[in-house]
């Protein structure tokens, strides 16, 4: 399944209410829980947190891509959070992160997981596009922007 097919309003939150890194991770997992995409919150959160503890997935230009593998999901799941004000996510460039793409995949589906991550990397190469996402007024607009509608 392509990344774009994972993007639905129910897994998008703008703005995120959290103000720190730990809160963002919890909130992103909760988005999946609230959307009915996962049942076992703790298992998914642990997978994401453990990966994040190795090295922050906060990249340059306000992008963060927390991800992990968990047997608690049967297929690739995405949660997308946007914090227009920026949150300290221990990013590579030391700048606040604004766009958070969280992916969690089952251990036996590494291929789709890798391809979705690669698609996100391509997607966020355009700074103008990232600015447009950050400036979206609601989840619907985020989905429309990503799908190019």
């Amino acid at each position: 399944m392509a990344f774009i097919d994972l993007v639905q309003e129910k897994i998008v939150r703008i703005p995120l209410v959290s103000t720190d890194k730990a809160g963002v991770l919890r909130e992103l997992v909760q988005i999946l829980k609230d959307a009915g995409e996962i049942e076992d919150y703790d298992a998914v959160f642990t997978a994401i947190r453990e990966r994040e503890e190795k090295l922050s997935t906060g990249l340059e230009n306000g992008i963060a891509v927390p991800h992990g593998k968990s047997a608690a999901v049967s297929r690739l799941k995405l949660a997308l959070g946007i914090a227009p004000e920026g949150i300290d996510f221990a990013s590579i460039d030391g700048q606040p992160s604004r766009l958070f793409f969280m992916l969690v995949a089952p251990p036996n589906q590494s291929g789709p997981h890798v391809e979705a991550l690669a698609e996100i990397v391509k997607l966020v190469q355009s700074k103008a596009f990232c600015r447009a996402l950050t400036g979206s007024k609601d989840a619907r607009e985020v989905v429309e922007l990503i799908r190019g509608e």
Partner: peptide
Amino acid sequence: NTKAMEDLLKARIFLQDELMEYEHDMEAD
């Protein structure tokens, strides 16, 4: 898809040991 994994390593989304783990998983897949 080692090309995508190398891209993710360059983008610093993947750690070196993570890349090896995913490669191993994908070989098994």
